[in-house]
Design a protein around this nucleic acid. Structure first.
Length: 420
RNA sequence: GGAGACGUCGCAUAGCCCGGUCUAGUGCGCCUCACUGCUAAUGAGGUUUUCCCGAAAGGGAAACGGAGGUUCAAAUCCUCUCGUCUCCGCCA
């Protein structure tokens, strides 16, 4: 949720933000109008209510003969108060509804444009030249088969398209990646968390996932639970309705993630690049708004550290305004090189959501001037399937074996994955 | 799944039966001041949040798990709902 007062003071900023995001700038004007109505309604109600309170008090004190007259008076007032209150509630609801539709005020530093208009910030590592090495790179599906690490066929048999089994070294690889990620997060001061992945609508709403992202969440209609698409949801909602002390607070959440992947028919149908269920270690920070930008850089650095340790070639991109999602004011993705696709593919993403989520979730901190919403940021440390894809494809050798990155060896207990 | 108890100001509790004097008492904690070689003790005062009007000073409204209802008036009465706990059953 955006800052209503800021919007009132500087509507142009918000109109422009909406525009560069490809969202409707007219919502800003609708909100201003609705907010005016809301404030008028509040004042009307409160005036009446104040009159009623005084009158009501005098009823209790009054003697018999005066009482009847006062009561008569009070009854009329009660009706008016009720009507004014209903009007107030309705006006507040209307304004609130519009305010929920307005995206977070974009960071002017974010590149303007659509999905394709990202800016490459840096490229790290060099893609291998398989031709020069004298063999053709196999893709992760093939390697997964050779190593008996990934079974997509049986995944499909049991659960359908976009499901898979990690088997043998594949399963071990996940555990090693997770353990390495958690260990480095703990070293960096994160509190490791294993959160619930079924959440109530309020938590989902509060993190902004029931807006335009709604079609991508699984919903258990019978019990009105949502399956989270990222532990960002339960981690953000963890401190719902609280006033925090000792910021920043950093959590590293390890959880399964569920995504419907609606509207992606025909995209990434092969392998485990795009799946309905996967595990992920997610970093989540609560900090003071003035520290958010620096915190964002730190999250990105931790992500880079991880991919450096995996010895993978990757690039960092600054995601363009039209592709940010409602909560983020700026977003950096790490894209790892995928040899068989001859392309960089997204493996992590870190977002600065400033106070957007905390306003909805009512998460604050205290300073000299009272309480203020905190800033929230999130970033992927490791999303398992895509990282496995990158490791298998980039570190493969001619015979189909895969070299294990040094950092991972102690966690995996082997330096090479060999064909089974 | 069945039966019951409970949910109040940072924490612990009172108030609810018998509606108004209750945003709400008490204890603890915390803050300020006084007293005091120091500490402790003691005394006085203070100690929630959100919103509206206002340049400010200040004024007003709302909140006793949540949502409705009854009433001139609800922490207090009624309904629903969520959560916690206990017992029974069931499963591990």
């Amino acid at each position: 949720m955006i800052d209503l007062k800021a919007l009132r003071e500087n509507p142009d900023l918000f109109r422009n933000s909406q525009k560069v995001r490809g969202e409707d700038p007219l919502l800003v004007d609708q909100l201003i109008a609705a907010d005016d109505l809301r404030r008028i309604a509040i004042t009307e109600f409160e005036t009446l209510r104040a009159a009623q309170n005084t009158l009501s008090k005098s009823v209790g004190a009054a003697k018999n003969e005066d009482k009847a007259a006062l009561l008569e008076n009070a009854k009329g007032l009660a009706t008016d108060v009720k009507a004014a209150d209903a009007k107030r509630a309705q006006a507040e609801e209307a304004a609130h509804k519009i305010s929920l539709q307005i995206a977070n005020l974009i960071d002017p530093a974010a590149p303007i444009g659509g999905e394709a208009d990202f800016k490459v910030i840096e490229e790290i590592g060099k893609p291998r030249d398989f031709k020069a090495e004298g063999f053709a790179a196999k893709d992760h599906v093939e390697l997964g088969k050779i190593l008996k690490a990934i079974d997509t066929e049986r995944g499909a048999k049991v659960s359908g398209a976009r499901f898979y089994y990690l088997t043998g070294v594949g399963a071990l690889l996940e555990l090693a990646l997770v353990n390495y990620a958690i260990a480095s997060a703990v070293k960096a001061g994160f509190i490791p968390m294993i959160p619930p992945v079924l959440v109530k609508p309020h938590a989902m709403e509060g993190t902004g996932f029931l807006g335009q992202a709604a079609e991508n969440v699984f919903h258990l209609a019978q019990d009105d639970f949502y399956l989270v698409g990222t532990s960002e949801v339960p981690l953000a909602a963890y401190h719902m309705d609280e006033i925090l002390e000792n910021l920043p607070i950093r959590y590293a959440g390890y959880s399964p993630c569920f995504r419907r992947e609606a509207g992606t028919y025909g995209k990434d149908t092969r392998g485990i690049i795009r799946v309905h269920q996967f595990e992920k270690v997610e970093m989540f920070s609560f900090c003071k708004p003035e520290d958010a930008q620096a915190e964002h850089k730190k999250l990105l650095q931790w992500e880079k550290d991880f991919f450096d340790a995996m010895e993978l070639p990757y690039r960092v991109i600054d995601v363009a305004s039209g592709d940010l999602g409602a909560s983020a004011i700026r977003k950096f993705d790490i894209e790892a090189w995928i040899p068989t696709q001859d392309a960089y593919r997204e493996v992590t993403s870190t977002s600065n959501c400033t106070e957007f989520q905390s306003r909805r979730l009512n998460i604050r901190y205290r300073d000299e001037n009272g309480t203020k919403p905190v800033a929230t940021l999130n970033g992927t440390l490791v999303a398992i399937p895509r990282t496995i894809v990158a490791i298998l494809e980039n570190h493969q050798q001619k015979d189909g074996s895969v070299k294990v990155p040094k950092a991972l060896i102690p966690f995996l207990g082997m330096d090479t994955l060999v064909p089974a």
